[in-house]
Structure formats: C-alpha cells, structure tokens
C-alpha cells in the first residue's frame, strides 16, 4: 500500500530530498504535491480495500464451495474450511455427467460466427457511409442510427415466429443470425473511418485499385484498434447473451453455455458443490482471457462505451 511506503533514505535515486519525493511519488503513482499519509488518504485506501474484498467475495465463495464435498457444502454452520478437506469430486462429476464442454463449444462457435459476420457487414456499411456518395445514403444512415434504441427484447416473439417460418429453430443459425445486427457498431466504425485521411486512399486509387481493395488493404489495417474494440464487445455480448439463445434452442446439444447452465440448476437440485463447479467452469474461459488481455479488453470496452471516441 502506498501509505505504508514511508520515504526511505536508502531508496534508489535518493539524492536530493525533492528528487526522492518525486521518485517515490512516481513509483506510487501519486500526483505531484500530494501528501503521503493524510487521514483522508488512509480512509480512501481502507475503503478501496474493503470494497475490493466485497466484490471478490462471491467469486471466492463459489470457488471454495465448488471444492467441497456435497455434505460439507450443505453443512451448517457455514465454514470456509470444511472438516473433511477439499476435493475435486464436484468437478469430476460435472465433467463426467454434464454437457459443459459441449456448451462451451457451442458458445465458441456461435459467438465467433456472430463476431465475424458482424465485423464484415458493419465495417463494409460503415465504409460506404463514410466515403461513398450513393442515393439514399443520408436517410439509410439515419434509419440505422434510429434503430439503436430498439431493444432486442421487443423482437423476441416475431423473431421466433420468423425462425419457425424459416425452419431454423434449434439450429446454430437461429442463435447466430438475429445477433449480427448491431446498428451502434456501424455508427462507431463510421466515426473512425471518417478520421482516416482520404489522401491515403487517393494514392492507391490513382494507381488503379478498386474500392474493395483500398478498403481491405489500406483502411482496415489502419483501423485495427477500433476493429478490436468492436469485436471484443460483440463477442462478449454474444458469449453471455441469455434470452435469445434460450428461446431459439430447446435441444440440450445446441445450447450455449449460459443457457445450458440454467438447466444445470434444476438438474442438480440441491447439490450445491456441483452447481458452483458448473458456474465456475462456465465463468472460466472469459476470466482466463481477461487475465491475459486485461488492458486491451478494458480499452475496448471503454471505446465502445464512449461511442467510439
């Protein structure tokens, strides 16, 4: 904790007092001119630690429960350390009898397909809105922007009806297709393309490159950060989406992870350790990805959250 870092005389760079202070301040990420240990600051640090513990508790509690035997999980009084020790029985049972690997696979397939299709259709459209002057451009763009306020929940009944008509219920396509329409992403990408200098493209076009080629080999490579942000947002959204896949699939072999997990609760009834083991396993892929790509993911979400600014 920064408050415990008292200025040490033998700290590296401890020449002049001023320099020492600024080095430590830098090390602790403090703003210049700030005091180390005012009462307010100590209070703030304590508050932060308490809140972080609060936020991590449900995770820890789930993980600890998942490593208990069923009897220990259901024993009162509640304890962090079961008398009969920790065990991986719950995981073994869930993996042996359950469908979690299959559901993870389904989620991966559908979320990947949704992300790829969304990227292709939204970036092409956004490029056209940014660069090409075609009839109806203005009203079409406004129609798409206006559609941002339509909540997907309003469409569940007619969409299901449509899937019945197209005979797609209980297929991957029923899960995928309605989730590739992201009007907000067209807006975000267009805003980014607007800032790519036109001169870069003009040079290539004078050399005879067609629009699609210019788009593919000049605009897209320059747009990597925004494409990454959009992909991340769409992928996580699709990976976690519950309502639509829940409606579109009833066949357990086609369910995505969130939908399948909902059936686990009823299947395992009061076997708390196994329910928690399933939940932990379901959480694991994104948690691991997040641990590795924390910086990029946070940046991506902030970018899309701020509408691409």
């Amino acid at each position: 904790m920064a408050t415990t870092v008292a200025p040490q005389p033998n700290a590296p760079g401890a020449g002049a007092g001023v320099r020492q202070q600024s080095w430590l301040a830098q090390k602790a990420g403090l703003r210049i001119g700030e005091r180390f240990a005012s009462p307010g600051r100590i209070g703030a640090v304590v508050a932060l630690v308490v809140l972080a513990v609060f936020w991590l508790l449900p995770f820890f509690w789930a993980v600890v429960t998942s490593f208990k035997s069923e009897t220990a999980a259901a024993a009162t009084p509640v304890t962090w350390f079961p008398e009969d020790g920790f065990t991986t029985d719950a995981y073994a049972n869930v993996l042996r009898e359950g469908n979690i690997p299959l559901w993870t696979w389904n989620s991966l397939i559908t979320a990947t397909a949704i992300t790829l299709i969304t990227l292709v259709v939204t970036s092409l459209a956004a490029y056209a809105f940014s660069r090409l002057d075609f009839t109806g451009r203005r009203w079409l763009f406004w129609a798409i922007i206006a559609a941002i306020i339509i909540p997907p929940q309003v469409l569940i009944v007619p969409l299901f009806y449509e899937m019945l008509t197209l005979n797609l219920v209980d297929t991957y396509w029923a899960v995928i297709l309605p989730q590739v329409v992201h009007p907000a992403m067209v807006f975000i990408l267009k805003k980014f393309f607007d800032q790519v200098p036109v001169e870069l493209e003009d040079a290539a076009r004078i050399d005879g490159a067609g629009r699609l080629r210019v788009f593919w080999s000049i605009v897209l490579p320059l747009s990597r950060p925004i494409l990454a942000a959009v992909s991340m947002f769409v992928f996580v959204f699709a990976w976690n989406n519950f309502l639509w896949p829940f409606i579109a699939t009833s066949d357990a072999s086609l369910m995505t992870l969130p939908v399948g997990l909902q059936t686990v609760k009823s299947a395992y009834g009061l076997q708390y350790a196994q329910v928690m083991a399933s939940a932990v396993l379901a959480a694991l892929p994104l948690v691991v990805v997040f641990l590795f790509f924390q910086r990029q993911i946070i940046k991506g979400f902030a970018t899309t959250g701020f509408g691409g600014q």
């Binding site: 092409l124 809105f129 090409l132 075609f134 309003v154 009944v157 067209v186």
Partner: peptide, 25 residues
C-alpha cells in the same frame, strides 16, 4: 452501385432480423 454493394450485406440482415420483426410484431 459500389455504395449500395457495400451496404447491401448489412441492409439485408438489418431488414431481415430487425426491421421485418419490428413491423411484423
């Protein structure tokens, strides 16, 4: 022509899975 070709894929999914269900609903 090129403009509409570029927006066509999005417009197709947009109409099929957003505009049409909205109207039909």
């Amino acid at each position: 022509r090129i403009g509409w070709a570029f927006v066509a894929p999005f417009v197709i999914v947009f109409v099929m899975f957003l505009v049409w269900p909205l109207v039909h609903g």
